[in-house]
């Protein structure tokens, strides 16, 4: 089994707010991140797939196809967007880094052929990242 990681970068804005909570609770839980005008991050995405090395190609996965999937399913949808307003997953869910990692997993997992998705890692900044390994 070999693990392969492909990296991508995107920039997006977001804010944290739960309409079911009071303004005081929102402020207590989310602090500055609750500003409804939003704020932004340069996200780094690391997608790790795993599989056996194909004896003919020497590949675990065709990187070109993986890159196309990431471009189409993730970057086109998220890069330079306001996540709360422009990405359907976040019309209901709060676009935390946790939920972003789960959404990216759900976007790319059904599109992958041959290789198995192992991990989605999303860096919100160099000092904060989330790992998601699938539903558990």
């Amino acid at each position: 089994m070999v693990y392969l990681t492909r990296k991508a970068e995107f920039s997006a804005s977001h804010y944290y707010h739960n309409p079911d909570l009071t303004p005081e609770e929102n402020q207590r839980i989310f602090g500055k991140s609750g500003n409804p005008n939003g704020h932004g991050h340069n996200y780094t995405l690391e997608v790790t797939v795993k599989g056996e090395v194909d004896s003919r190609s020497g590949f675990v996965v065709d990187l070109k196809k993986l890159k196309e999937i990431l471009n189409r399913e993730v970057l086109d949808a998220l890069d330079h967007r306001f996540l709360n307003k422009e990405v359907p997953e976040f019309s209901r869910q709060i676009p935390t880094t946790e939920n972003l990692a789960i959404a990216i997993w759900q976007r790319i997992q059904p599109k992958l052929q041959n290789a198995q998705l192992h991990r989605v890692r999303v860096y919100e900044s160099p000092n904060l990242f989330v790992d998601f390994y699938g539903k558990a």
Binding site: T97, I102, N127, F129, V130, D131, F132, Y133, K135
Partner: peptide
């Protein structure tokens, strides 16, 4: 959904 969050400090 279980996720792992990592925070870095210096």
């Amino acid at each position: 959904m279980k996720a792992y969050l990592t925070r870095r400090y210096m």
